[in-house]
Design a protein around this nucleic acid. Structure first.
Lengths: 127, 127
DNA sequence: ATACATGCAAAGAATTTGCAGCTTG
DNA sequence: CAAGCTGCAAATTCTTTGCATGTAT
């Protein structure tokens, strides 16, 4: 399955690069739709998946909300506000080699991990 | 909203206590349905939510799969097999006070975090 | 040419919700 | 008896898929 270089795929990558961090598929769709009203939402999802698989972008799975997509390459984590659902970046010193510390069922191959925080964002706290 | 002590709520709690770890709402539903064929799925979801909120059980949000529910009290994390979707417990030495290490937007209140791993389980590796 | 992609609409999976009637305190 | 619940079905939300047509290589 050799990949093609389609207009739509480039638009999606371009959008992720242009828009603010951790956008949802829906946001990418609305963004691109402004200039390309006929793009289909399925195409957005398909291309986000392909780009993430190729490592061009990063898929961030947010518990309790739609997946987000990042262009950022370096590792960072996220907090989700339990009131409004907004997602923010958080910084944290690299955890010392988490992958070598885990113990799972015998023979389990560990590939990846993610840490996600929950909290209440400044705006929601003062309401 | 004072809580009542309903048969259904007790059945759900009982089910979580009886069944193996990290079960899905669907599994709880099927389990209870054996003896109470008229229980509604909405009731299962509502009660799982209430019990989790009360701290009687723990909700574990699995990226890319349905929520799981645990009776286990102590902290532990999970791996999800990317091939078959099965979820396993993992053990890891307590991380030294992650909550005090995070830096988020100014004024963000951090409440909780979870770590989730991905991997390939023994069964799927040998297939 | 021909395999891969697209747009559109419909299907799916997980969960939530509206509502009339039933229960618990 | 009033506030909570329940069962049921329909609605929501996010994402995937089938298919006829389009297009990059």
């Amino acid at each position: 399955m050799k990949r093609r270089n389609t207009i739509q795929r480039n638009l999606v990558l371009e959008a992720i690069r242009t828009m603010k961090s951790h956008v949802t598929a829906e946001e990418v769709f609305e963004f691109i739709r402004k200039n390309h009203p006929h793009i289909g939402k399925g195409t957005i999802y398909r291309n986000l998946g392909i780009l993430a698989e190729e490592g061009e972008i990063r898929r961030v799975e947010i518990p309790d909300g739609p997946d987000r997509f990042d262009f950022t390459l370096k590792d960072h984590y996220h907090v989700r506000c339990i009131r409004c659902g907004e997602v923010f970046d958080v910084k944290m010193d690299a955890l010392s080699d988490l992958m070598s510390k885990v113990r799972g069922p015998r023979g389990m191959e560990f590939l990846d991990y993610d840490i996600s925080f929950k909290g209440i964002c400044p705006d929601c706290r003062t309401e």
